[in-house]
Computed example of a mutant assay.
Amino acid sequence: MKQNFTVRHGALDGVEAFLRVAQHRSFRKAAAELGVTPSAISQIVRHLEERIGAPLFIRTTRSVGLTEAGEQFLARAKPAFEELVAATQAAREYGQRPAGRLRLSVPRAVVPILLEPLIASFCRTCPEVEVEIAASETLVDIAAEGFDAGIRMGQFIDADMVVVPMTKPFRYVVVGSPDYLAGNDRIAHPDDLRQHACLRLRRSSGALATWSFNDAGRAIEIAVSGPFIAHDIPTMLGAAIEGVGLAQVPEPVAASPLKSGRLVQVLAKFATMSPGVFLYYPDQRHVTPKLRAFIDHVKSSSS
């Protein structure tokens, strides 16, 4: 396939040699500075002149001067080459130390309970890294969307991703407010949920999530019904606290309202397990220093 590059292949060859000769007005001094022979420098410059189609230097046995074409080329090539060198150095530094913007795709539910303390300590540890959090329930293609990594529950991560555990496995629990539970029928088995107001979660795919249970080793899936549908777990949890109905949520998310008594757990013996929350990123041979620093921070914080 024909390639149409903006800059022709090899077009930059010889530019540094030209700039050194122009600076010193000497092929010999330029050669010594670059660590090559004067004849090598002369040949490199000659090839550059051939590609450009104009002589750049006026050569005599005693001196070296610039032609009008050489003056024009120097005026534009020198600042452009210096900018290219600076860009190369900046990129090299980013490749050697934790710096730059670290973009993470995360679900809203993990931000207050997991990410806020972790990000605060990471920012103190790596002040040159700028952390950007995109909180959404949508399962995005992190590589296509320009994210360095994502954070999700293990069951929602593609198998080709590298994963780092951020939490231990935890239970999915069914919770309701004391007022709701006091005014409704007793709940002894998942089948009893059919007579209750259950708060539902719409996944990013558009499907309504079913509720999962473990009945003595037998997996149960129930399509519940109720008056309220949320698009994220914190919203659904808030509705449960307000007494709208029952909600099935990750236990760490409900830990604080359970402890304070704003929520009560039911069907505890039927709770199913989640593998936990993981940091994940594409399988790359070269992980950037900023991501490597964050991975190491996650590992040290969860150990």
Score class of each variant (00 low, 15 high):
Ser177Arg: 02
Leu246Arg: 02
Glu49Thr: 11
Gly217Asp: 10
Tyr280Thr: 09
Ala77Ile: 02
Val249Trp: 03
Val7Arg: 13
Phe228Arg: 01
Thr125Ser: 12
Leu114Pro: 07
Leu48Ala: 05
Ala216Leu: 12
Cys126Leu: 07
Asp191Met: 07
Cys123Leu: 11
Gln96Pro: 05
Arg186Ile: 05
Pro227His: 13
Leu139Asp: 12
Leu246Lys: 01
Val45Ser: 10
Ala223Arg: 12
Pro257Glu: 04
His24Phe: 15
Val15Leu: 07
Leu279Tyr: 02
Ala149Trp: 09
Leu48Phe: 02
Gly14Asp: 09
Asn184Lys: 08
Glu145Asn: 04
Ser204Lys: 07
Val7Lys: 11
Gly154Met: 10
Val15Glu: 02
Met166Gly: 08
Leu102Glu: 06
Arg46Asp: 06
Val253Glu: 08
Glu242Lys: 14
Phe170Glu: 03
Tyr172Met: 11
Val140Arg: 09
Phe73Cys: 06
Leu56Phe: 02
Gly261Arg: 01
Tyr281Met: 08
Phe147Thr: 03
Pro127Met: 04
Ile229Phe: 05
Gln23Val: 06
Glu68Pro: 05
Ser42Tyr: 06
Pro107Leu: 10
Leu48Glu: 05
Thr235Met: 08
Ala223Gln: 10
Leu246Thr: 00
Ser205Leu: 07
Ser121Asn: 11
Pro38Phe: 05
Asn184Leu: 04
Val110Leu: 11
Val45Lys: 06
Pro234Tyr: 03
Asp296Tyr: 02
Glu49Gly: 12
Glu50Cys: 02
Phe228Lys: 00
Pro234Glu: 03
Asp192Gln: 00
Leu193Ser: 00
Val64Asn: 05
Ala77Met: 09
Ile44Gly: 03
Leu12Ser: 13
Lys299Pro: 00
Ala80Met: 06
Leu114Ile: 11
Val175Phe: 00
His189Glu: 12
Thr235His: 06
Ala86Met: 03
Glu116Asp: 15
Asp185Asn: 14
Leu19Val: 05
Gly70Phe: 12
Val36Glu: 14
Leu84Met: 10
Glu137Val: 05
Lys78His: 06
Phe122Ser: 05
Phe57Asp: 08
His189Trp: 04
Leu199Phe: 03
Ala22Arg: 09
Gly176Tyr: 01
Ile222Arg: 06
Val110Asp: 10
Met236Asn: 04
Ile222Glu: 09
Phe270Ala: 03
Ala207Glu: 14
Ala268Ile: 04
Asp179Cys: 07
His9Glu: 13
Pro275Glu: 11
Arg59Thr: 15
Phe73Glu: 09
Met161Thr: 04
Leu56Gln: 07
Arg194Cys: 09
Ala293Leu: 04
Glu242Val: 00
Ile233Gly: 00
Ala219Lys: 14
Asp141Gly: 11
Met161Arg: 14
Pro98Phe: 06
Tyr180Asp: 02
Arg292Phe: 05
Gly70Gln: 14
Pro107Gln: 11
Pro190Thr: 14
Ala54Gln: 15
Thr88Trp: 08
